[in-house]
């Protein structure tokens, strides 16, 4: 029971915070917005982690299930035993990323896309989500209206008073090089960059495994990305 995955999970302080003693009441699943739409059940995740069953935890880490959580933390507010499945899932995600288990599931593999988009957005623009990179063809979930917004970006943002890509103050303003440099150093010191590397590392292994190889015999991450986009 006291084996690798369990101790990895337990080494994260969030687990202690998130899991005291679950009694299977199911209120977390009842309140969970994700559970309404996906085959996703925070109660059973909490129970699996509580049982400490190494095999089942390994399955969990390699599954789609842990990626459905929207981290709204509604579960925390309702739990009669002061558990927080949302935090348990954060820990599971982290362990899944660190051990490379995430590349085994469709939802997990998308971590690579997120690093490449949101992750790099932060470093390059200073924003997680920047309107200029949300190409309508990649984001069907935004609906057809997004295409119009994208094409008339300048007018739309100006009309709401934003300073899109502009110098000086205002929302969506251009972030200065010095600030970006500082952000970069924070990421380096805090381990954020290392984290990006880990995800990239395992994703490359997966890309090779799936046969995405370029002429140099290395992982062809372009094709892998296309594959991931199709997988969504």
């Amino acid at each position: 029971m006291h084996s690798k995955l369990n101790s990895l999970l337990k080494s994260d302080v969030r687990l202690e915070e998130g899991l005291t003693a679950c009694m299977n009441c199911g209120i977390c699943t009842a309140i969970c917005p994700a559970a309404e739409y996906f085959e996703y059940d925070p109660r059973s995740i909490a129970v699996t982690v509580q049982s400490g069953n190494e095999e089942e935890i390994a399955t969990l880490l390699e599954s789609d299930t842990i990626w459905y959580c929207g981290q709204c933390m509604s579960c925390k507010t309702r739990c009669p035993r002061n558990n927080c499945p949302g935090l348990i899932i954060s820990v599971l995600r982290k362990v899944s990323q660190e051990t490379g288990a995430f590349v085994q599931s469709r939802m997990g593999r998308q971590q690579y896309l997120i690093v490449k988009n949101i992750g790099m957005n932060i470093l390059n623009y200073g924003y997680c989500v920047h309107p200029t990179i949300l190409m309508p063809e990649n984001h069907p979930e935004q609906g057809p209206v997004w295409k119009w917004v994208y094409e008339n970006m300048g007018e739309v943002y100006a009309s709401v008073g934003a300073n899109l890509n502009g110098d000086g103050p205002g929302a969506m303003r251009k972030i200065s090089g010095a600030d970006l440099g500082e952000l970069h150093r924070i990421f380096k010191e805090s381990g954020g960059l290392k984290f990006y590397e880990t995800i990239e590392h395992f994703s490359k292994i997966k890309a090779l495994e799936l046969g995405f190889v370029n002429e140099n015999g290395e992982a062809d991450m372009e094709k892998y990305t296309q594959h991931l986009l199709q997988e969504i």
């Binding site: 309404e36 739409y37 996906f38 069907p140 979930e141 935004q142 609906g143 057809p144 209206v145």
Partner: peptide, 12 residues
């Protein structure tokens, strides 16, 4: 209708 992706509720 904005054609958002909606998997449909799985509530009982």
């Amino acid at each position: 209708d904005f054609s958002f992706l909606n998997p449909g509720s799985r509530q009982i």
